[in-house]
Design a protein around this nucleic acid. Structure first.
Length: 776
DNA sequence: ATGCGCCAAGTTTTT
DNA sequence: CTTGGCGCAT
C-alpha cells in the first residue's frame, strides 16, 4: 500500500543495523557478495535491501529474488511486504521462475506450453521405461544410480548428446545409453523433470542472445539467496541475467553448503569475485542468534574444513549453558531421554514445546523419536520431505488433472488407466502402447482408436472408450477453475465412489486427503481469479512445493526434522541425535574428503540453529535396518572443544566425574553390559594431538616407549561385537572388553586364523572395520 | 485380470 | 523394518 510505503521513512531501513549490514542494504549498482555467517541477519539484509531499491525509485518489476525453497521465498515476500507494502518484485524459487519462463518459450525447446512437470517418482517411471526400451544391461547398476547420473549431467548443462560417461563407470555407461531415450520419452509426453526446468532456461539464455538480453534488461536487479547451493545450471541462469546489468547481489555462506550431492558447486561462491569484476564484498560475521558457547563449538568444528573462506564468528550475547554431549545406551533410550527432558521443561513452565527441535541425518531416525514423544505426551510435528503431494491418492487424482491439461501425458495415463480398477490390465496396456508407437500417436489418442485396434477385443475396447469419454467430460470443466475440474475428475473417474464403497480405514483416510486437496484447490481458485490457466498453474505449484514448506512455525509442538530441512531456521533448544560414524558422517560420504567436509557443514548448520541450548547425542547401540549394532562415535565429536562441553550419561549430572570400570569377569560373556565411556576416556586427546598422532604413526602403529597412546582411536571407541582389523592378523571381531581408560582391553576373535588375542587398546593398532580409509 | 503373498531389495539429504 | 516388485493361484 502506498500509505504504508510513505509512512516508512528511508532512515528506518537502516535503523538497528550494524555497519556491514547497512553497507549491504545501501548497495545499489554493481555486483555484491554478502558472506553471511549463520544468524547474522541475512534475510533482514536482503529484505531491507529490496525495500531500499524500491525507495530509490527502482520499479519492483525489474527486481527478481531467487531462492531455493518456497519457504524462503514466502518469508522474503512477507517481510518485504511489511517494509514496503505490496510489490511487483518476483520472489520465488529457481524452479518456479524457470517453469514460468518455460511456459512462454516452450516451443523453442520442443515443448508445448501446457507441459507437465514430473517429480522424482514420475521420472523414475520414465527411466524404467527408457531402460526397458533400450534393453540396456542393468547388471551392476541401480535405477537410482542412473537417475542421479542423468540428473548430474543436466545440472552440469549436459544434454543427452553431450553426455560423456566417466571411464570405468558401469552406471555412467548405462546412463549414457539411456539418457537420450529417457529424454525422448519425456518430450514425447510433453513433460519435463525438475532438472529440465533449469537446463532448458539455462540453455535458452546461453544460446539465444536476443532473448537473454531481453530478460537481462527486464530484471536489472537480481538477488540470489543461498548462493553456495547453486549448481552450474543455476549459475548459468544467474549469469545470463546479469551481463548487461551486473547488479547481482548474492548471499551465502560456503560453510553452509549442503547440497553438493545435488550438483551444487561451491566454486560458484568461492570464485564469485573472479566471475564478476569489481565485486563489493560484505561480511556479516556478527551472530545475533546463539550463545558464545554454541558458536565456539560450531566454529571449531567448521575450522576443520579445508575448502572454505575463513570467517570470524562473534557475538555480543552472554555466555549460556555449555554445549552438552550425551551418550545413551541405545537409540531408544536416546529418544526417550530427550522426550523426557523436553516434557520436564514444559511441565516446569520453562519452555514451550515449540522452543525445541530435534535434528537427525536421515528420515528413518524420526520413527523412534515420534514414538518417544507420543509416549511422553509431548506434541510434535515431523517435517518430512515427502508427505502430502506424494501420497498415492493425491498423485492419482493429480494424474487425471495432468492428463486433462496435457493430453499427451502418456505417463499420467499409464498411472490412472486402471485406477480405480476397470479391467484394463497389463495386456491391454501393452497393446495400446504398441499401437501408439506404431501409429506415432499419444497413448490417449491410441485409446481413442481402441475400437479399431485389431488386437483389442470389443469388450475391452468399450472399457477403454468409456475411460476416454470420462476424460473428455472432465476436460470440459477446465475453464471453470481447479476446484470444479477436480470435482469432475472425482466423479467421472469413479475415484470417489471407489474409495467410498471401500471398507478399509486406509481408504477413508485417503478420502480425507482428497478433501484436503479440494480445499487447497478452492483456495487456489480464490487467489487466482483468471481460470483459464488455473489448472496448469495449480499443477505447477503442486509439483514444485515441498512439504517442508508446510511446517508450522507457530504451532505449540516440538519440531522433528532432518539436518537439511533445518537450514535457515532457529530454535532456543536444539538436539542433534545419532552423532555416530556411518550416520553423521553418513556412510556414503565417508571416503571422499569433499563429501566428508559437506557432512561436517551439515553438522555445523544443525549446531548453529540453536539459540540457547545445544545437545548432541549418540547411542552405544542402535537398531537400524532391523538389527541392533554397536556404534562408533562420530569422528566430528573429536573436533569439538571438548574441554568446555558438558559430557554426561543419562541420569548423570553433567561433568559429574563418572568413573565406570569393568570387571575382568565381563570378558567373554555374551551379554556383556554396554560399554561406558567416561569423560576422560572419551575426550582423551585434544584435536591437535589426535590429528598428529593419527598422521605421525602410520598404518602399523608402533608402540611408543613413553606410554603415549599410539592407537588412533580412543579406547572407548571399541565395543564387543564390533568388527575390527589389525595390520598383521587381518579382520576380526571384538568378543569382549574390559578395564577402563588406558587400561581398557579388548579380546578379538580373528577370522583368518580363528585365534583369539587380547590387546591393550591404547597401544593396539586395531582399527574399526570400515575406518581404514579414514587414516589414509 | 485381479489379488494375494512371498521374497527381495534398499534405504541421505530435495526442487 | 518398510516398501516395492514379481509370480503364482484364482
Amino acid at each position: 500500500m502506498n500509505f504504508d510505503f510513505e509512512e516508512t521513512p528511508t532512515t528506518d531501513l537502516f535503523a538497528d543495523l550494524t555497519a556491514p549490514q547497512q553497507q549491504a542494504v545501501r548497495h545499489v549498482n554493481g555486483p555484491l557478495l554478502i558472506l553471511a555467517g549463520p544468524g547474522s541477519g541475512k534475510t533482514r539484509v536482503i529484505t531491507h535491501r529490496i525495500a531500499n531499491l524500491l525507495c530509490q525509485g527502482i520499479p519492483g518489476s525489474s527486481i527478481i529474488a531467487l531462492t531455493f525453497t518456497n519457504k524462503a521465498a514466502d518469508e522474503m515476500r512477507r517481510r518485504v511486504h511489511q517494509l514496503a507494502g505490496e510489490q511487483q518484485v518476483w520472489m520465488g524459487t529457481f524452479h518456479s521462475f524457470c517453469a514460468r519462463l518455460l511456459r512462454r518459450y516452450a516451443s523453442l525447446v520442443g515443448l508445448e506450453p501446457n507441459y507437465s512437470i514430473y517429480d522424482t517418482d514420475d521420472s523414475r517411471r520414465v527411466l524404467k521405461q527408457a531402460l526397458a526400451n533400450t534393453k540396456a544391461s542393468t547388471d551392476h547398476v541401480t535405477p537410482g544410480g542412473i537417475a542421479s547420473a542423468i540428473s548430474w549431467a543436466k545440472n552440469g548443462l549436459c544434454g543427452p548428446d553431450d553426455f560423456v560417461p566417466r571411464q570405468y563407470s558401469a552406471t555412467g555407461a548405462v546412463a549414457a545409453q539411456v539418457y537420450p531415450e529417457y529424454q525422448r520419452l519425456l518430450r514425447e509426453a510433453n513433460a519435463v523433470d525438475f532438472d529440465d526446468l533449469l537446463l532448458a532456461i539455462a540453455q535458452l539464455l546461453r544460446e539465444n542472445a536476443e532473448l537473454r538480453a531481453e530478460w537481462d534488461d527486464r530484471y536489472r536487479y537480481v538477488l540470489v539467496d543461498e548462493y553456495q547451493d547453486t549448481n552450474l545450471a543455476q549459475y548459468a541462469i544467474v549469469r545470463g541475467l546479469s551481463i548487461d546489468h551486473p547488479n547481482l547481489a548474492v548471499t551465502g555462506d560456503p560453510d553452509q553448503s549442503i547440497y553438493g550431492w545435488r550438483g551444487a558447486n561451491l566454486s560458484n561462491i568461492l570464485e564469485f569475485e573472479r566471475d564478476f569484476p569489481d565485486t563489493t564484498i560484505v561480511r556479516l560475521e556478527q551472530n545475533f542468534r546463539s550463545t558464545p558457547n554454541i558458536l565456539r563449538a560450531a566454529d571449531q568444528l567448521i575450522a576443520c574444513n579445508v575448502r572454505r573462506k575463513a570467517k570470524r564468528l562473534y557475538t555480543d550475547r552472554a555466555e549460556g549453558p555449555p554445549v552438552r554431549l550425551v551418550v545413551y545406551p541405545t537409540g531408544r533410550d536416546e529418544a526417550d531421554g530427550i522426550a523426557a527432558r523436553v516434557a520436564e521443561e514444559i511441565r516446569l513452565g520453562n519452555r514451550g514445546a515449540n522452543d525445541f527441535a530435534v535434528f537427525y541425518r536421515i528420515n528413518a531416525l524420526s520413527r523412534t523419536l515420534e514414538h518417544a514423544f507420543r509416549s511422553a505426551g509431548v506434541p510434535y510435528q515431523v517435517v518430512k520431505g515427502l508427505e502430502f503431494y506424494q501420497r498415492r491418492e493425491i498423485k492419482d487424482v493429480l494424474a487425471y488433472l495432468q492428463l486433462v491439461n496435457n493430453p499427451r501425458d502418456n505417463f499420467a495415463l499409464l498411472r490412472i488407466i486402471n485406477v480405480p480398477p476397470r479391467g484394463l490390465g497389463k495386456v491391454t496396456v501393452g497393446r495400446l502402447v504398441a499401437y501408439a508407437q506404431q501409429q506415432r500417436l499419444s497413448l490417449l489418442e491410441a485409446a481413442r482408436h481402441s475400437g479399431m485396434i485389431p488386437t483389442i477385443p470389443a469388450r475391452t475396447a468399450n472399457k477403454v472408450a468409456a475411460l476416454v469419454a470420462a476424460v473428455d467430460r472432465m476436460a470440459v470443466h477446465v475453464p471453470s477453475g481447479v476446484c470444479e475440474t477436480l470435482i469432475a475428475v472425482l466423479e467421472q473417474s469413479g475415484y470417489r465412489r471407489w474409495l467410498e464403497t471401500s471398507e478399509s480405514e486406509e481408504d477413508e483416510e485417503r478420502l480425507a486427503n482428497i478433501e484436503e486437496l479440494l480445499t487447497a484447490a478452492e483456495e487456489f481458485d480464490h487467489e487466482h481469479p483468471e481460470p483459464d490457466q488455473a489448472v496448469e498453474h495449480f499443477l505447477e505449484q503442486s509439483s514444485l512445493v515441498a512439504d517442508t514448506d508446510a511446517w508450522e512455525e507457530q504451532a505449540e509442538r516440538v519440531t522433528l526434522m532432518t539436518l537439511h530441512a533445518a537450514k535457515g531456521l532457529e530454535f532456543p533448544v536444539v538436539h542433534i541425535i545419532a552423532a555416530e560414524q556411518r550416520l553423521l558422517p553418513h556412510e556414503r560420504s565417508m571416503e571422499d574428503p569433499d563429501k566428508l567436509e559437506e557432512e561436517r557443514r551439515l553438522l555445523f548448520v544443525g549446531m548453529t540453529r540453536a539459540c540457547e541450548e545445544l545437545q548432541i547425542s549418540l547411542a552405544q547401540y542402535r537398531t537400524f535396518r532391523g538389527d541392533r549394532r554397536p556404534t562408533i562415535p562420530s569422528s566430528f565429536l573429536m573436533e569439538l572443544p571438548r574441554q568446555e562441553m558438558a559430557y554426561s550419561e543419562p541420569g548423570e549430572e553433567p561433568d559429574a566425574g563418572v568413573d565406570f570400570s569393568f570387571d575382568v569377569e565381563d570378558f567373554g560373556s555374551e551379554t556383556a553390559p554396554p560399554p561406558v565411556w567416561t569423560d576422560a576416556e572419551f575426550f582423551q586427546e585434544s584435536p591437535d594431538d589426535y590429528q598428529s598422532s593419527r598422521f605421525a604413526s602410520g598404518r602399523s602403529a608402533k608402540r611408543s616407549p613413553g606410554g603415549a597412546p599410539t592407537c588412533r582411536f580412543p579406547p572407548s571407541a571399541f565395543f564387543p561385537g564390533m568388527a575390527v582389523s589389525h595390520p598383521q592378523y587381518g579382520s576380526g571381531m571384538i568378543v569382549a572388553v574390559g578395564g577402563s581408560g588406558n587400561k581398557r582391553r579388548a579380546r578379538v576373535q580373528f577370522f583368518d586364523d580363528h585365534q583369539e588375542r587380547s590387546f591393550l587398546l591404547v597401544h593396539s593398532p586395531l582399527v574399526p572395520e570400515g575406518m581404514e580409509e579414514l587414516l589414509e
